[in-house]
């Protein structure tokens, strides 16, 4: 009996490796409209579509996996998946710890505040508390501003909820996400607004892989290049961000 099982396993393994290369991609599906869970418990969003399209163009398979942001890079380092495509801004600090694909999306940081607030810049928020997701560029830029109390959350949605409830005074996150919460979600939209897109410079999203994982990186870069040359990314942008 054992032998049969062993044979079957071997056949399975051989056959799967005979198929196209499969890349497992981690996403923190709490970041609409870039990556989030739909009603059918599937990870959807701009990033998710982008990764599927890139895979199709470059001839490999992808599997999307939902991983909490806090620790998503630790999992990459531990080899639990091949890549992270989850609105990851390419930063020098991160480049030391992992390798990045070519940039595939440009964002800036946006400040979300209650409708009645007059703040236009982060400096206007001195003495106030601003929330951001732990380990995101939004949280990092907030922390750098003197006099502002930066508060980290596990998920950006929890920060938005605290802002909505008046526990904090603002939230800083990527502009597509800010737009999703402050403009699309009816309950929040009635109370919140985007005060400003911050002057903290352009940021570019990249797909992160473990340092030295050239095989995966090349495949992903190839896919990204194809998607861009065919203009597929513009379709996705229209679909997910309406612009």
């Amino acid at each position: 009996m054992k032998k049969v099982v062993l044979c079957l396993l071997t056949v399975l393994m051989l056959s799967s490796s005979a198929w196209a290369k499969k890349i497992v991609i981690a996403q923190d599906a709490t970041w609409p409209p870039m990556e989030f869970m739909n009603e059918n418990k599937e990870i959807v969003g701009f990033d998710s579509d982008y990764m599927k399209a890139a895979a199709k163009e470059a001839g490999y398979e992808v599997e999307l996996r939902n991983v909490a942001w806090d620790g998503i890079f630790a999992g990459l380092d531990a080899g639990q998946y091949d890549a992270v495509c989850s609105s990851v801004t390419i930063t020098d600090e991160r480049k030391k710890a992992m390798d990045f694909s070519e940039p595939y999306f440009k964002v800036r940081q946006a400040l979300v505040v209650p409708k009645e607030s007059a703040a236009k810049t982060l400096e206007d928020m001195k003495g106030k508390t601003i929330g951001g997701q732990i380990g995101t560029t939004g949280y990092f830029v907030t922390k750098k501003v003197e006099g502002v109390n930066a508060k980290s959350y596990d998920e950006i949605g929890l920060a938005m909820e605290d802002l909505f409830n008046g526990r904090i005074d603002g939230v800083v996150c990527d502009d597509p996400v800010a737009a999703q919460y402050a403009l699309q979600k009816a309950e929040y939209a009635a109370k919140l607004k985007i005060a400003a897109v911050l002057d903290t410079g352009d940021e570019y999203y990249g797909v992160a892989v473990k340092k030295g994982n050239k095989e995966v990186l090349d495949l992903i870069n190839k896919g990204i290049a194809e998607v861009q040359s065919k203009g597929l990314d513009k379709e996705m942008r229209a679909k997910w961000m309406g612009q």
Partner: peptide, 23 residues
């Protein structure tokens, strides 16, 4: 720390998420 209260654990996580020194 999940309530965003900056306790021992959350401070640690903030540090780790910035420097990738999880272990």
């Amino acid at each position: 720390s999940i309530l965003a209260v900056a306790d021992l654990l959350r401070r640690g996580r903030e540090f780790a998420s910035e420097t990738f020194t999880y272990f």
